[in-house]
Design a protein around this nucleic acid. Structure first.
Lengths: 232, 232
DNA sequence: CGATCAGTTGACAATACTCAAATACTGTGG
DNA sequence: CCACAGTATTTGAGTATTGTCAACTGATCG
């Protein structure tokens, strides 16, 4: 982990949604305080309660942010991919991280130390507005997650997620789960057994066709109505 | 609803957590764009999808922010009391409100219009940092809510909530639910029948004593362990 | 090739929801 | 101040969804 000043990093920072539109001058400032970190698949990045001395951007790879219950069950809060950030909450709210973060793949992260970063934000309102937008966006996602968890049964949550992936991937009626089914279960707030059963059920009922991690939507209309109403 | 410039409003704004520590000069700016709105109990403040032309602070009264499922079940996201704010997400993230807001009591709100407010924030990094802290705080609460909804059963969520209220109210072993039991059920992601049964069960098991909306914690230790482990 | 891990399936248990009905409470108009 | 209407709360009985436990298959990786 070492401070960094090269041009490619500056360009990369400017391409992230967090720093989109930030002036070059400030991007250079950012790159001046950034440290690039490598971490291996399954490596722990931080744990609940760890002091939040800074936050991260994902340069390459993927990271999962999750909560653990005392008996070891996990609930994934989100999966962070290239260009996205995580851990900002600890920087602005309090001291400690409210969740755990682990690399899903061998990854390269950009770490931004708290104090230096706050100093930059204080001096640059545009940066602050970008951050406000990013946090608001995340809040919106969490709102939807709470909605789904409390108002919909697992089939409804799964249907909504499949449609989300399909939309994001924009490849006709096909989509890829992007996660192991075990991890997907955790993201949907359920367990692998239940997910497995519901996937088969959706296939038998003609909503989808399953081939490993690849899914084809065979009855979009009914899948949409399942996602919306949460019931068959 | 009319723009406002009086000293009492400035002082009040400076006492909210959102604008705590903001310089007087900027508080005057804020009060210059603020509109005070009255609304009656049960009045709708905004609905999902409404354009987010600004956000609100609660001056007097209380407001609930909630999601509705297609078949009318509600999940309360939070209850906003005096000095707290809601609706900021729409201001910074997108255009529209992601949830519904309704007054729980006759209330007086302070409305801050989006464009004027964003202009003020752009010119004042300290304001931006306060907002970042507030949004981060809310994100942290939502994190806990997602955790509770997905990892704990209703008794665990209820126990955690009772301890939260007890801590907040700081009156020995006593606490008040602050909401009707129906509303509390919605906040905990369940239904009134289930809540009622679990409250009686906790009373029979000696955890608490119930008198309408007033609760006495009679076995804190077991209540804490229920809140932590989510199981009896 | 053995070991570990992901995924699937079955039998079962448990938690929480639905529906229904009885009771208590609140606020309003007479 | 009382009666009434509309809510809120509680309780019961039945059902449904999902979680638990266990066994088995198949893939992946040293």
């Amino acid at each position: 982990m070492s401070a960094n000043m090269d041009r490619s990093l500056v360009e990369w920072l400017g391409a992230t949604s967090l720093f989109d539109g930030v002036e070059d001058m400030h991007l250079w400032d950012l790159s001046g305080i950034a440290m690039v970190v490598s971490c291996k698949r399954r490596a722990n990045i931080f744990s609940t309660g760890d002091p939040g001395n800074g936050f991260y951007l994902v340069k390459e790879g993927r990271v999962k942010v999750f909560m653990l219950s005392p008996d070891g069950k996990e609930q994934i809060l989100h999966v962070i991919g290239p260009g996205e950030s995580f851990g900002e909450v600890a920087v602005f709210a309090g001291q400690s991280f409210p969740a755990h973060a682990v690399a899903l793949e061998n990854s390269r992260l950009v770490f931004l130390p708290r104090d230096d970063f706050v100093a930059l934000v204080s001096a640059n309102p545009a940066l602050a507005l970008n951050l406000l937008a990013a946090l608001s966006q995340r809040l919106r996602q969490f709102t939807n997650m709470i909605d789904a968890l409390s108002l919909k049964e697992v089939p409804g949550r799964l249907a909504a997620h499949l449609l989300y992936l399909n939309d994001k991937q924009a490849s006709g009626d096909n989509l890829s789960l992007e996660l192991s089914k075990t991890q997907l279960a955790s993201l949907l707030g359920t367990i692998p057994e239940t997910l497995s059963r519901i996937l088969s059920k959706l296939q038998r009922a003609g909503f989808i066709a399953i081939d490993g991690s690849d899914i084809v939507i065979t009855d979009r209309q009914r899948l949409v109505s399942l996602a919306e109403f949460g019931k068959f």
